[in-house]
């Protein structure tokens, strides 16, 4: 009997090893492409775009739509691979460590400029070379339709009379929308009660049910409730008004001097990628993002198209990084 058991466990170990080695193979295949003709005939095989969030989510939809258009331009197919985990840090880390040959690109998200300040990952924009910014959506201060304030000014006045009582829902502790609410606190010198949720949608649901007083999420995320008339947007936290809600003023129009805070998505490649390859990709993605088909798709979903080339996108990420470095440490996280 003992012998039989032993045999069983040996076989079990072997199976474990087979499984493990089968999975390891996945990581090695990229190695072969290294060093091959980096230059003029790029691309000559499929490009992989790593999306650090789940299939079916907002970032994934934007990536797939963009890739659909870009690959026609490029005459090579672009495959989307969703690598999830750690609020995007798992996928982006894998992408930053990929071969810098242009065949692995990444859809980076705003969190990239936040991790180091939150202490959740050492990843920073420096781990990548920017290709193009595609989308930007500002935070929109949204309150129930029957709230006793109609402007940001009135909201702030109310918050000053009720310090720490106005509850503002966000998409999770340290999420971009949490930072947005903290930014408003700083700019208006008020004290809010931050209520973290598991993502923006549950926060908006809580707002629609009148369980919280406000949310600071993107216009697209409050759009269905806005159309239904159950909420109203008081202001957007950007320099320009948002296409989805052109009647809503920006914070600065309302006389509040606050940072622009929003979520964004862009394309990057590993930091060592040669410039000539970056240029090819930049041209492709910038023109794809300006195609009518893509803009239509973004409009339908209430997402803002904001296109910046490699250099501008790099500066943009650094500005974001510096700004988050000022706001996040004061938020009392960790």
């Amino acid at each position: 009997m003992f012998n039989l058991k032993k045999k069983g466990s040996v076989l079990l170990m072997m199976m474990l090893m087979i499984v493990l080695s089968a999975c390891n193979g996945e990581g090695n295949e990229e190695g072969t492409a290294n060093g091959e003709n980096q230059g003029t005939d790029f691309p000559n095989k499929e490009i992989e775009l790593i999306v650090p969030t789940a299939a079916g989510g907002g970032t994934d939809m934007v990536a797939r739509q963009l890739v659909d258009i870009a690959q026609d331009d490029l005459d090579e197919s672009i495959g989307v691979m969703n690598v999830e985990g750690g609020s995007g840090s798992v996928g982006m880390t894998q992408a930053a460590n990929a071969n810098p040959d242009g065949y692995t690109a990444t859809m980076v998200i705003a969190e990239l400029a936040m991790y180091e300040h939150l202490g959740t990952s050492p990843l920073t924009p420096e781990d990548f070379k920017p290709v193009a910014l595609i989308n930007y959506d500002p935070a929109a201060l949204t309150v129930p339709a029957d709230a006793p304030y109609d402007t940001v000014g009135e909201f702030i006045e109310y918050a000053k009379e009720h310090p720490g009582e106005v509850s503002v829902g966000n998409a999770g502790p340290g999420s971009i929308w949490h930072v947005a609410a903290a930014n408003l606190e700083n700019a208006a010198d008020i004290e809010l009660n931050h209520v973290p949720h598991e993502g923006a949608a549950p926060a908006v649901t809580a707002l629609a049910g009148n369980h919280i007083d406000a949310v600071t999420v993107s216009p697209a995320e409050v759009r269905t409730q806005l159309d239904a008339g159950s909420v109203k947007v008081l202001a957007v936290m950007s320099d320009e008004r948002h296409d989805l809600i052109p009647d809503v003023p920006t914070l600065s129009e309302e006389g509040i001097d606050a940072e622009s805070i929003g979520t964004w998505r862009g394309i990057t490649v590993p930091s060592e990628t040669p410039d000539e390859i970056v240029e090819i990709l930049e041209e492709t993605f910038v023109s794809a993002a300006k195609e009518e088909e893509f803009i239509d798709f973004m409009n339908k979903n209430g997402l803002g198209v904001q296109v910046k080339g490699s250099e501008e996108f790099g500066e943009f990420m650094e500005e974001n990084r510096a700004m988050f470095g000022e706001i996040i440490p004061e938020m009392g996280l960790e």
Binding site: G86, S89, V90, T120, G172, P173, P196, L333
Partner: peptide
């Protein structure tokens, strides 16, 4: 993983895979 309200890391042993 990350504390859902405070954002503190719990039992992650520094692994970002365990953050969520």
């Amino acid at each position: 993983g990350l504390d859902p309200i405070g954002g503190t890391q719990r039992f992650t042993f520094g692994s970002m895979n365990l953050n969520n």
